[in-house]
């Protein structure tokens, strides 16, 4: 179906996303932070990027900004669960204002993920 790059520092969620998306027929690659994510973006050339917001080294906001500035046109889905004072709502609202195609608040269901991915891919 589509090539999807998942960027998340939580290994468990990363694997779960890969499993769920692969089951829907997508080709999935994963990265544990923004630095690795951007590197893999150049190699993998995905049709869709799913990125967490709060991550070490390079966070999701930086990834989104870089991808949008590169004018690659690749749609982005932002996911976030928030941390301490930084809420998920704040992170996702920020991502939305930056121009991502879809947002998902952790935890989310498989149907929500599928629906958001299909919308972002224009299916």
């Amino acid at each position: 179906m589509a090539k999807i790059l998942v960027i998340d520092d939580e290994e468990q969620l990363r694997d779960l996303l890969k499993q769920m998306l692969s089951r829907d027929g997508h080709e999935v690659q994963t990265a544990f932070d923004g630095v690795e994510g951007m590197r893999m973006f150049g190699q993998f050339n995905p049709d869709l990027v799913i990125t967490d917001i709060i991550m070490p080294n390079k966070d999701g906001i930086e990834v989104i900004t870089e991808l949008l500035c590169s004018n690659s046109g690749t749609p982005i889905i932002a996911i976030s669960g928030g941390r301490r004072a930084i809420t998920a709502e704040f992170n996702l609202e920020s991502a939305e204002l930056l121009g991502v195609k879809g947002i998902l608040s952790k935890p989310f269901t498989r149907d929500q993920l599928r629906e958001t991915v299909q919308y972002a891919l224009g299916l």
Binding site: I53, I54, D59, I61, E62, T65, L68, R83, R84, A85, I86, F90, N91, S94, L97, L98, G99
Partner: peptide
């Protein structure tokens, strides 16, 4: 750390807008 993250996000959004 939170404030750093918060303001970084805030500035990125404000800058983009």
């Amino acid at each position: 750390e939170d404030m750093q993250q918060f303001y970084k996000t805030l500035f990125a959004v404000i800058n983009q807008n």
